[in-house]
Amino acid sequence: MSLLVHKPGLLSTIQDAGREGFRKYGIPAAGPMDVAAARLSQSLCNNNHNQPFIELTLHGAIFEFENTAVVALTGGGATALLNDTPLPYFSSTVVKAGSILKFCPAPFGCRTYLSVQGGFTIPEELGSTATYLPGKLGGIMGRAIKAGDRIEFNLKKQIEENVTGIEVELGNPALYSNHVTIRFTEGPEWSWFSSEEQNLFLHTKWMIHPQSNRMAYQLEGNTLALTQKKELISTAVMPGLIQVTPAGFPYILMADAQTIGGYPRLARIKSEDRTILAQCRPGYQLNFQKI
């Protein structure tokens, strides 16, 4: 059983819950940007959370189901058409063999999660199928999905008609607004910045720069200068930390962030709110709220 990729869209990768245990080799967990949406797509398919699924970025992807499947879409950033008929997100549907699933532009959100019942059949690399592009690991030969790929899946269960229409509440503000608030606590180097700089961070309407990706989001709107010319000795970093470069630009580290970093860590995003960030596209406005 397989899904044939006609068009991959902006960036589509195979992910699972992530690759744990290899950070000491410089390998981050990767996994979905929007953990909540990814889990939901798995639950809607009765999968466990570690089965491989596809993360799509914005619109453009066109897939053909060569065999019948039970499919769930969650997240946002696109609207889906199944054989030219709208296919709702946040529910699971039986998709008949030969169907074409197409992702068209939508005003909000950034990442769609596509799960199939039984999961995609992808070989593990270092204990996970999650694609980590900078390390050429996981997924389909360590790369993004491309046109012509045939992605196997394994539908084990008897398809029942009643799996469709499981409606779930929309909880992510970035799926219906381009201006969101992100909660944070002080980062390890918060005190390296003067109270003026800290206030600037708090009161700036930050914008997500186009050069943002699965590794990090760059923010524009102001620059933050260090009070003293201190240099941080490189140390462990994690998704959710905000680093400030010598040029004064804040970067929010995301799922594919390197395991170590050498820039001062101004703030630490509340983990839950990373799912909001995952659905923010370049141009979205961010406000930071201290907790």
């Binding site: 000795i233 490189s234 462990a236």
Partner: peptide, 14 residues
């Protein structure tokens, strides 16, 4: 502890 990394003057624990 599930995982730990060393880096120059720091040890990090998961």
């Amino acid at each position: 502890i599930t995982e730990s990394i060393l880096c120059y003057n720091t040890a990090t624990f998961f």
